[in-house]
C-alpha cells in the first residue's frame, strides 16, 4: 500500500513532530504561550473532540466546513466548466466575456467576503457565494485554455465524421480539454478551502474557521493548532479524492505519459 516515497514522506512528518517535541517540551526554547506543545495540542484535541468547543464538537465543525466547500466547489465547476468550454469553442462568447473577466479576476476572492456577508449575512449562503467566486475563476480559465490547446486535426476529424454539436462537446471537446480542466479543478479546490476558512474567520457561527477565530480570542494556542491541522487534513483528503477521480477519468492520458 505505502510505497518507498510514502515512507520517506512519513519519515519527514515523524521528524517534524520530534523536532516540535524537542523545541517546546524538552528544551522549552519555544514557550507554550507562543506555540503549543504536543501535550497541549493533545488536550485541546480531546476537548473539542469530546466536550466540544465554540459551540460544537470537532466533527460537526469539520463536517460543516466540508459541506460548504463541497457545495461551493460543485457550483463553481458546474458553472465554470461549461462557461470555459463555451468561451473556448465560440470566439464571440470569448470576445464578450473576456473583458469582464479581466477586470474581475484581479479582485482577490477574499475581497468579496464583506459584500457577501452584507448581502447574505453570516449563514451558509454567504460562504458558498464566496467559494463560488474564488473557485469559479481557475475552472473557467483552465477549461478555456484546455479547449484552445486542442490539436486542430482532432476537431477537424470530428467535423469530418459529421459529429453533431452536442456530441462534439461531450465526446471530443471536453475529453480533449480534460487534462487542463483537472488542473483548473485542483486550483479551484485549493481556492475553495482558502476562501472558506477566511470567510469563517471573518464571520461565522460554526466551522473550522470559526474555531480558529474563537481560539484566537480566547488566547488558546493549542486549539488554534487543532483548527489549523484540521484544515490541513481536510484539504489534503479532498485533494486526494480529486486526484483519484482524475486518474480514473484520464486513464487514457496517464498511460500515454508513461
Amino acid at each position: 500500500m505505502i510505497g518507498r516515497r510514502g515512507w520517506i514522506g512519513l519519515g519527514t512528518v515523524a521528524a517534524l513532530i520530534a523536532l516540535w517535541f524537542l523545541l517546546t517540551t524538552v528544551t522549552g526554547i519555544v514557550s507554550g504561550a507562543r506555540f503549543p506543545s504536543p501535550a497541549e495540542f493533545w488536550l485541546s484535541l480531546r476537548q473539542i473532540w469530546g466536550r466540544g468547543y465554540a459551540g460544537g464538537q470537532l466533527i460537526s465543525h469539520a463536517l460543516h466546513s466540508l459541506k460548504l466547500v463541497a457545495m461551493g466547489f460543485a457550483v463553481a465547476i458546474a458553472t465554470g466548466i461549461p462557461l470555459g468550454l463555451w468561451m473556448g469553442w465560440n470566439r464571440k462568447a470569448e470576445a464578450a466575456i473576456n473583458p469582464v473577466f479581466l477586470v474581475i479576476r484581479p479582485i482577490p476572492p477574499l475581497a468579496w467576503i464583506p459584500l457577501a456577508i452584507l448581502w447574505l449575512g453570516l449563514g451558509d449562503s454567504a460562504k458558498i457565494l464566496v467559494i463560488w467566486f474564488s473557485a469559479f475563476v481557475p475552472s473557467v480559465i483552465n477549461t478555456f485554455a484546455g479547449v484552445r490547446n486542442i490539436d486542430r486535426p482532432m476537431i477537424e476529424a470530428a467535423r469530418m465524421l459529421g459529429t453533431p454539436r452536442w456530441r462534439m462537446v461531450r465526446e471530443v471537446i471536453a475529453p480533449a480539454a480534460s487534462p487542463l480542466i483537472f488542473t483548473g479543478l485542483r486550483l479551484s479546490l485549493q481556492a475553495s478551502w482558502t476562501t472558506l476558512v477566511a470567510a469563517e474567520l471573518v464571520g461565522a457561527l460554526v466551522g473550522v474557521g470559526f474555531v480558529l477565530n474563537m481560539a484566537q480570542q480566547d488566547l488558546y494556542p493549542g486549539m488554534i493548532l487543532v483548527g489549523m491541522v484540521t484544515v490541513g487534513l481536510l484539504g489534503w483528503a479532498t485533494t486526494v479524492l480529486l486526484g483519484m477521480v482524475e486518474r480514473r477519468a484520464l486513464s487514457w492520458n496517464m498511460a500515454a505519459r508513461d
Partner: peptide
Amino acid sequence: PGPDRAVVFQQFALFPWKTVRENIELG
C-alpha cells in the same frame, strides 16, 4: 466538412480516449 469526404490525416488525429472500435464507430 462531411462524412461523404473522409479524411486521413498525417498525424492520424484519432481520439485517444476512445478505443479503436469506438474511434471507428463514431462516424
